[in-house]
Design a binder for these strands. Structure first.
Lengths: 226, 226
DNA sequence: GGGTCTTCTCAGGCGGCGCTCATCTGGTCC
DNA sequence: GGACCAGATGAGCGCCGCCTGAGAAGACCC
């Protein structure tokens, strides 16, 4: 814990910074923010992050230039570039300039987290993760689950949702937290997607009449527990 | 907690109180002020704040003494001490007396806010916290309690009410304090919701014939004790 | 273009939960 | 012992939070 992985988030949009910071902090990373390219370079020098998440489009020094300077200064840092949907040409340029990966906005948090983990793993140690809870097995790499010998296929959203619960068993996750993690960061307004997907998941997890694992906590959210 | 975080500001300088109060209120905290050590202790008893911001130098009961008494009163309250620049020796004494952090005056508000956030984060709910009292366990994350091996499910209001008692064991909580914390009422209208929910809680906590933990203090309020 | 899979919206339904109310109980004071 | 009042109790009601089934829209594949 004392030597947690440090991640620097550079984006001029405070909303994105906040969502990313909160999410990553929740996952146990130490997060530093910067609102501009200049500040980003400064914070990078100051905190020596393991990974930099970097928006391409920023006033002043933009993401590409920051990448160039980071590479010139210190080669080992991993760089994840964020690019708006219609800036796809930037992808190529971004990767050529020295970014290790890129992600198109808007993205949902689990996607970001997956990239972050992948990048950090590449820089560190690999491992085929299998999460277990009660009689449920969850193979992160294979993207499938097993219960009472049965193989359970999951769609992407179901996978993200179940992954979140498997990472935080016995903990009540509020609707807000779940929405922020599994659905797009800029999701606004009322929707009952969450209920619907909880229903899908329950349907698959309890297909053979097994006991309920995903419980409703009225007025709060949901928990994974026996 | 169900309602906003409460912060008590104790300083004999009205200017500082005003600045701090406005700023914190703007950030969404509920702020209570006190102009002296005596008043501070009184307000603390009355409002059960999560954090106390406390000036060291005050006529009458000073900050150090207030800290001592707050700690003696079994409060798990976080304390942030304010000290003038040339009272640096007070820092040491302040921390030894039981303050959780200190801040040198003059300070800018962002500095204060950063400390406040850090303290609340550290102090509030370290993930996986389990509160215990007698043979009762209260799992904050899972939103459930256990007694004599039995799992006790709680509704949101029951949870908020029990949480309040678990945070202040053996302390008599008046009806007003409880109403203010759990229902956010200004106790205007008459209602016996509190009695009803005390009954619900007792029902669940003593379902297997266990001894009473939630006691009535006639004319005052309720206590959690053996 | 047709078929399939996935994501998400929408309308309707149901029951849990928060709360009120009327009545009962017991402690306290004279 | 009687009167009074704070709190306890049981019953019940209405809302809204969540569940459910159906289907539209879009992506992908052949």
């Amino acid at each position: 814990m004392s030597d947690a992985t440090r991640i620097l988030v550079v984006d001029d949009d405070p909303k994105i910074r906040t969502v990313v910071r909160r999410g990553l902090a929740y996952e146990g990373y130490r997060v530093v923010e910067a609102a501009s390219g200049e500040e980003g370079l400064e914070k990078a020098r100051e905190h020596l992050p393991d990974l930099v998440i970097l928006d391409v489009m920023m006033p002043g020094i933009d993401g590409l230039e920051v990448t160039r300077r980071l590479r010139a200064a210190r080669g080992e840092v991993a760089i994840l570039m964020l690019t708006a949907r219609d800036e796809i040409k930037d992808r190529v340029e971004g990767l050529e300039t020295g970014a290790d990966d890129y992600l198109v906005k808007p993205f949902n948090f689990e996607e970001l987290l997956a990239r972050v983990r992948a990048l950090l793993r590449r820089h560190a140690t690999p491992a085929g993760e299998i999460l277990r809870f009660a009689d449920l097995e969850f193979d992160v790499d294979a993207r499938e689950a097993h219960r009472s010998g049965r193989q359970i296929e999951l769609t992407t959203t179901e996978y993200n949702l179940l992954l979140l619960f498997m990472r935080h068993p016995r903990k009540v996750l509020t609707r807000d937290v779940i929405m922020e993690h599994v659905w797009a960061y800029d999701f606004e307004g009322e929707s009952n997607v969450l209920e619907v997907y909880v229903r899908y998941l329950r349907g698959k997890l309890e297909a053979a009449g097994e006991a309920r694992l995903l419980h409703t906590v009225r007025g709060a959210g949901y928990v994974l527990k026996e």
